[in-house]
């Protein structure tokens, strides 16, 4: 394999991993609070549509902002139903995702017409980090990426700090481990859980936005194609820790980027469709083997 191909593969891995990592960071926050957010796929899709509309109206950064807001509004529905209203988390999350699929499809048709595929959205061009991008191999892979990738990497310590160094993080984790104990200690369990879900929705929304603004450059119906669900697998693989989530997202990114690599090098031993399915198979494998000693928050998917 020549170096150029390796660099292309590495860069694709990082690019593809970005939306996954953002969504997984969001899901990790939500799950640490005890809410299994199956609506994360819906938040990503809403974020993608919001990003497309925002970017066309006011440029790519407006797209990021609108995408984040759209992701949060989808999460708001889940927070109201599953946390405030104490409905079943699995059902509410599924409903949010299915609702988002329908709603984004409808809005997209209204906004963009049926042309769809031809839609061009202003994108966030890759930005090189001065000096670092000159580093051989690593430079072009890591330091010539979209600003949203840098944002993602910066968010990892921020989320870790939020979870482990702040009173809010302590309250959130307590609500996710032992809602009764948290309540006895004076934690407003539903409030912190709701905030966790909203924060998660915001990050998933940015994740969806990055898909449109830094990867695909257009919006199509159902374009997230299960990335939200893969983010849930990533959280398990990353053991509910932001750093773990980033690394696991890179692994899934690599599994996806593999198809680019195979196509580019003209290898046809494995059918193209199998490679497309690779990340999903990997997700299944992760969830089935439950990854060693990883332990979910004790009250995950349980209402108080």
């Amino acid at each position: 394999m020549d170096l150029e191909l390796l660099i292309a593969f590495g860069a694709a891995t990082v690019r593809v991993a970005t939306p996954l990592a953002l969504a997984a960071l969001g899901e990790a926050i939500s799950e640490r609070g005890g809410v299994l957010n199956l609506g994360i796929e819906g938040s990503m899709l809403a974020g993608a549509l919001g990003a497309a509309i925002g970017a066309i109206a006011g440029g790519p950064w407006a797209g990021v902002a609108l995408g984040m807001a759209a992701g949060m509004s989808a999460a708001m529905v889940l927070a109201l139903a599953a946390v405030v209203g104490r409905a079943d988390q699995i059902i509410s999350g599924t409903a949010v995702t299915l609702g988002a699929i329908g709603l984004t499809g409808m809005i997209a048709q209204q906004a963009f017409g049926t042309a769809g595929a031809g839609l061009a959205v202003p994108t966030l061009a890759p930005v090189g980090v001065p000096l670092l991008e000159q580093v051989p191999v690593l430079g072009p892979i890591v330091f010539r990426q979209s600003p949203l990738t840098y944002l993602t990497v910066a968010l990892v310590p921020v989320v870790a700090w939020l979870l482990f160094r702040t009173r809010f993080g302590l309250e959130l984790r307590a609500a996710g481990e032992a809602p009764l104990g948290a309540a006895a200690a004076g934690v407003r369990v539903r409030m912190v859980r709701s905030l966790g879900v909203l924060a998660g929705g915001a990050l998933a929304g940015i994740g969806g936005a990055s898909l449109v603004l830094a990867q695909v450059g257009t919006f199509t119906e159902r374009m997230t194609a299960g990335r939200g669900f893969i983010a849930i697998a990533i959280v398990v693989l990353g053991r509910w820790h932001p750093v773990g989530a980033l690394l696991a997202a890179l692994l899934f990114g690599a599994a996806t980027a593999l198809q680019f690599l195979f196509q580019a090098s003209g290898i046809t031993v494995v059918p193209y469709q199998v490679l497309l399915a690779l990340p999903y198979l990997l997700a299944l494998a992760v969830l089935a083997t439950a990854v060693g000693r990883a332990r979910a928050p004790a009250a995950l998917a349980r209402n108080e």
Partner: peptide
């Protein structure tokens, strides 16, 4: 289930016990 969170360390449990007096940014 109430007084302590079993999976949390004693330090974390100590923090939870005095939540109302805890600063926003924790000094572990």
């Amino acid at each position: 289930t109430e007084a302590l969170i079993g999976e949390f360390t004693l330090v974390e449990n100590q923090a939870l016990g005095h939540l109302d007096r805890l600063p926003r940014w924790l000094d572990w």
